Amino acid sequence: MATAVSHPLFARIYPRINAFAEAHGSIEHRQELLAGTHGRVVEIGAGTGANFAHYPSEVEQVVAVEPEPRLRTLAEQAAAKAAVPVEVRAGRAEELPLKDDSFDVAVFSPVLCTIADVPGALAESKRILKPGGELRFYEHVRSERPSFFRLQRLLNPLWGLLGGGRHLTRDTERALQQAGFAVKDVRRFDFLINGRPRLPLHHRNRPPVH
């Protein structure tokens, strides 16, 4: 399987999207996601490396896997400024270039909404996690409100075209359970900008591996 995925338009606009999101609350979401991480961490789909500044000192090393070359270059720049050691590698979630049972924590943020083979990616993350390790995620997911979900379905094709293959309507929690993860903690919320919800919904989870 190729290690590169090219989304040149999305890769150019995503830093601006991320900066806007960080100005409206996503920094706090990332800090919540990463609080309590420790040991060796693999970040799958690291993007620009926006999480790197928020890993706590208990983290010994972050191995960040990113297939998009433009985003990977930005991630390497962010890694050089991180307070914890970060190694950025090329690779895809469906075929991680990493050893079995070698990480304490796996992080997806936000990338499961873009992956074509979600079961394959989750199987890979389970393979590389140590027994008792945990997976955390911060993702776009389908709404539990019928009217909002209908709007998500309507916008999904355009969102995928402009957003590097992103999906608004995935049931990530169910996918985790089907992959053999036990869902321990999950929080769903609207991403609010100036008090108004913006598509899509996000949620965070910390399921331990069986």
Rank of each mutant, 00 (worst) to 15 (best):
187 R>I: 11
176 L>N: 08
136 R>S: 01
201 L>H: 09
176 L>P: 01
138 Y>N: 07
177 Q>I: 15
168 L>R: 06
146 P>K: 05
139 E>P: 00
202 H>R: 14
183 V>D: 11
149 F>L: 15
190 D>A: 08
194 N>Y: 13
186 V>T: 10
154 L>K: 13
195 G>C: 15
192 L>Y: 08
139 E>Y: 00
158 L>C: 10
192 L>H: 03
198 R>M: 15
163 G>K: 00
168 L>Y: 04
193 I>M: 01
165 G>S: 07
179 A>V: 04
177 Q>L: 14
182 A>W: 11
142 R>K: 13
191 F>T: 00
149 F>N: 12
151 L>Y: 04
147 S>W: 09
168 L>T: 00
173 E>Q: 08
195 G>M: 08
165 G>T: 08
139 E>H: 00
146 P>G: 09
160 G>W: 04
153 R>Y: 02
150 R>G: 02
144 E>A: 13
140 H>W: 00
193 I>S: 00
158 L>Y: 12
198 R>Y: 09
188 R>A: 03
161 L>F: 04
145 R>F: 11
137 F>Y: 15
204 R>A: 07
169 T>C: 09
156 N>R: 05
148 F>D: 13
153 R>W: 03
145 R>P: 04
188 R>K: 14
156 N>A: 04
181 F>V: 01
176 L>H: 04
165 G>F: 05
169 T>H: 09
182 A>K: 15
142 R>F: 06
138 Y>I: 10
190 D>W: 01
185 D>P: 08
153 R>M: 11
167 H>D: 13
199 L>F: 15
163 G>R: 01
138 Y>P: 09
195 G>S: 15
